[in-house]
Amino acid sequence: MSLQKVYSLYKTMDEENLILSFKGVVTAELLASILQIIETKMVSSNESPRIRKKVFNILVECLQNLHHHADDYPDGRTALVTIAKEGNTFIVRTGNYIDNERAEDLKVRLNIINTMDKEGLKEYYQNSLESSVVSSKGTAGLGMIDIARKSGNKLDFEFLKIDNERSFFCLNVKID
């Protein structure tokens, strides 16, 4: 990276009010470290327990999604995670490769989630919890519903088609 790029990266991170950003493989150890850093930062900046818990919970689900799906792509195991604070709103953003077939399924699910209000999400979560089966990886298929429920906002997402096999999945979760 050229020295100018270092500065422009710094500027971007500064302008976007990033508290933390990470690009790499989300291992279990790294996940624990990120959670610890964010928890400490939120306590020291006197965030309310309510917002602290919401950010923490949503971050756990986002990071564990990235962790569980890291092996889907041997060539693209790395993911991007950023946490920003704009005014009183926290924004968790993630970006990762996903195969096009899974992208289609996920898109359908996310669109369904986004049509629902608070009560609808509650009912959807309860039904999914009852019928879900935990996979060998430990996933229960409830993560996105839980994220939407706790954020209280619509999920903002985009699938950028990279080639015939894969897309890059970008997710923005607002917490206020």
Partner: peptide, 13 residues
């Protein structure tokens, strides 16, 4: 419980 994730939620059920 202070926090639990969705992987735990099924096990708690």
């Amino acid at each position: 419980l202070e926090y639990f994730n969705t992987s735990s939620s099924k096990c708690i059920l």
